[in-house]
């Protein structure tokens, strides 16, 4: 009898397929901005739908691992996780799929193809619409911080241009920290020049408001959520990532302030 017919090997292969598809769902949720506890629950729900028991789960910043058990067989598998972002609609759609899978009756192939369909077809706002919205968010933040009305338009435009270029740079695979520094420099310079051109009295605030698109709000709250949920390693990793982004952003704005003669 070859190993291909060995019932233990066959069972292992089955378990591997269950683990892999559950981990794929978890990876999408994690890359879409879900906290670790939500990711773990989603993975467990899919495994339960196949009638297997989840013995253990571990999430790092770049990987998820799970151990599953059924009929005296146990396997552990790990999957790489890509860049963590925020995609609310995709996250919700995968959560809904997890809830459906938990009820049972879905095959591995059905879940795999549904996951692929969700990744492919979940709508995203167009880059130009997102840029305009993010520019509006920056200038609104600016008003909350105290920029005057003269700086309102320049900050909107600077934030929108920054977001549009950030989208394209990230799409081309440029390092996220380099992008943060470059966009901070660009947006702060544009916001500062615009505010100077309209003789705003709040040029420095306008420069700061122009880079607020870079502030990682969701990762910073997820860091805290993860720590509160009992995942301090992941929470700490997220916090360090947030700090690094802000360091690069601050470097960008520092150079912009030097360029425009705003420092000392």
């Amino acid at each position: 009898m070859g190993t291909g017919d060995d019932p233990v090997v066959v069972r292992h292969r089955e378990l591997e397929r269950y683990a892999t598809v559950a981990l794929k769902a978890g990876r999408i949720m994690m890359e879409s901005g879900a906290s670790v506890s939500v990711v773990h629950r989603g993975i467990t729900m899919i495994a339960r739908g196949f009638g297997v028991e989840t013995i253990g789960l571990r999430s790092g910043y770049t990987s998820i691992a799970m151990t599953v058990h059924a009929a005296d067989q146990t396997i552990t598998r790990m999957l790489q996780v890509g860049r963590l972002g925020v995609n609310h609609r995709l996250d919700l759609a995968v959560r809904e799929l997890c809830a459906r899978a938990e009820k049972g009756g879905m095959t591995v192939e059905a879940i795999e193809s549904e996951l692929a369909r969700l990744v492919r077809e979940t709508p995203r706002h167009s880059p130009w619409f997102t840029a305009i919205a993010v520019g509006l968010a920056c200038t609104s933040f600016g008003r909350l911080l105290g920029i005057d009305w003269l700086a309102f338009g320049p900050v909107w435009i600077a934030g929108a241009i920054g977001q549009y270029i950030r989208h394209h740079l990230l799409h081309r695979g440029v390092n996220i920290f380099i992008v943060a520094g470059a966009i901070a420099f660009l947006s702060a310079t544009l916001g500062g020049l615009g505010a100077m051109a309209v003789q705003s009295g709040t040029v420095q605030l306008a420069m700061m408001a122009s880079i607020l698109l870079l502030v990682p709000g969701v990762p910073s709250t997820n860091a805290q959520t993860d720590i509160m949920d009992g995942y301090p390693t992941m929470g700490s990793a997220r916090a360090v990532w947030v700090l690094m982004i802000m360091l690069f952003a601050a470097t960008g704005i520092w150079f912009a302030e030097e360029l425009l003669g705003m420092r000392g």
Binding site: N87, T130, G135, A137, L144
Partner: peptide
């Protein structure tokens, strides 16, 4: 009202970035 208005605009703007429907 000013704070509420710009709080709403900032939240909605970031909602678009986060791909809310």
């Amino acid at each position: 009202l000013h704070q509420a208005l710009f709080g709403a605009a900032a939240a909605a703007g970031f909602g678009v970035l986060f791909n809310f429907g």
